[in-house]
Design a protein around this nucleic acid. Structure first.
Lengths: 184, 184
DNA sequence: TCCTCGTGTTCGGCTTGACGAACGGCGTCG
DNA sequence: CGACGCCGTTCGTCAAGCCGAACACGAGGA
C-alpha cells in the first residue's frame, strides 16, 4: 500500500483541512473535544495520534478518514473514442475499456450533464486535488482548463484537474456527457 | 462524516483482511512488527490503536488505510433517463443530474463497455464493498445481481453491489455503457 | 500605555496503549 | 502418553499520548 510516512501527511492534511474551514487550532480542538496541545503537536508532525483522536478531528472537519492520508495529481488526458482499446476479459462479462483508475481515498460524484450551444461557461477552481472525468455520450463539447480546452465527440473521454479555472461549452444541440467529479 | 464507532469497524476489518490473507494473528503481528497481544486486543475491539500501529498492519495486509475504516452497503438503485432531475446550477456551467455521491475511501475504475446480444454473462462476486455504477449510453442492458436483474435503456442509471454474483446481457446490437467500478 | 482577547506553543501529571512473557487450548508426532 | 508446535488470550510493566494550565506573541480597544 502507501509508501510515505503517514505522520507528515496527516499533519499537513489536518492543517490544510482546518484552514479550509477557517478554524483556529483552539476552536477545532474545542469542537473535537481534544486538548489543543494534542492538536498542536499533531499538526507539528510529532507523536503518533490515536484513532480516537483522529476520528474526532475528521468528524469536525467533515472529511473522510482517508482524506487525511493521501496526496494530489495533475495533467489533462484525452482518450478518443477511436482509441478505446477494447479488452475482452474472462473476468468481466463484457468488453470494456479502462479509462481511469483512481487512487484510494477519493470522494466522487457521478453526474449526467447536458448543455445547449452558447457561450462557454466557466467554473471557478475547486479545492486542490479535485479532478473531473468527462465521457461524451452525444453532441460535441469544447472544454478543459482555461487555455487548454479540447474538443470532444461521442465516446471521447477527458480528464483534467478541477483546481484550475476551466470551462464547458456545447457545440451542438443536445450535447450530453457523463461527468465524474472527484474530491479528496 | 461517518456515524458508527470506528473501533468495531476497524476491529472487524482487520480480522477480515487478515483472514483473507490466511495469516495467523501471531504471524501478522510478527510481520507488522507489533506485539501480538496488541493485535489481539485490537481485533477484540478493545482500546484505541495508534496510527503507527494501524499503519503497520495496513502495510502488511496490503490495503489502503481507508479499507480498515469504512463499512459496506447494499441494494440496487435505478434512475431512469426520464427521471433525471436536471439541476441548473450557478456553480456548474451546465445542467446536471447527480446520480451517485460516493462514500469516503473508495478506489474506482472508469470503463466504457460494449456488448452484443447473446447469453447473459455472469461475473463472480468481488470482494465485499465493491460497487458497480452503470450508465447506459446506447442499446439495452439486462443486468444486476442474480435474481434482481433490471432492464436499462439509453440514459438509465443503475447501481448494485458487486460482492454478489451478477450478470450483464445486451439486448440490442451495439449496446454500450459507462461503467464505474468501486472498490474499498 | 495597559489591558484583553485571540492565536499557537511548551510543560508536568495522569491515563492508556504497546510490549513481552506466561497461560490454556488443540492438533500432531514420537 | 507426554512433548512439541501453533493458535489466540490474559497479565504486569513501561513508555507515550492525552490533557490542562501556564506560557509567549500579536492585534485591537479603552
Amino acid at each position: 500500500m502507501d509508501r510515505t510516512k503517514p505522520l507528515a501527511i496527516i499533519a499537513a492534511a489536518v492543517r490544510r483541512e482546518r484552514e479550509r474551514m477557517s478554524l483556529s487550532l483552539g476552536e477545532l480542538a474545542r469542537r473535537a473535544g481534544i486538548a489543543k496541545s494534542t492538536l498542536s503537536q499533531l499538526e507539528a508532525g510529532a507523536g503518533n495520534p490515536s484513532v480516537e483522536t483522529l476520528w474526532a478531528i475528521a468528524v469536525v472537519l467533515d472529511v473522510p478518514f482517508s482524506r487525511l492520508v493521501d496526496p494530489p495529481d495533475d495533467g489533462v488526458r484525452v482518450v478518443r473514442a477511436a482509441e478505446h482499446v477494447a479488452i475482452p476479459s474472462e473476468h468481466s462479462p463484457f468488453t470494456g475499456t479502462l479509462l481511469a483508475a483512481s487512487p484510494p481515498g477519493v470522494r466522487r460524484d457521478l453526474h449526467v450533464i447536458t448543455a445547449e450551444p452558447g457561450p462557454a461557461r466557466t467554473a471557478e477552481p475547486h479545492i486542490p486535488g479535485t479532478g473531473e472525468h468527462l465521457l461524451v455520450t452525444a453532441g460535441r463539447w469544447l472544454c478543459g482548463p482555461t487555455g487548454e480546452e479540447v474538443e470532444l465527440g461521442p465516446g471521447d473521454y477527458a480528464y483534467f484537474p478541477g483546481d484550475r479555472s476551466h470551462s464547458y461549452r456545447a457545440l451542438e444541440p443536445g450535447t450530453t456527457a457523463v461527468l465524474l467529479m472527484e474530491y479528496r
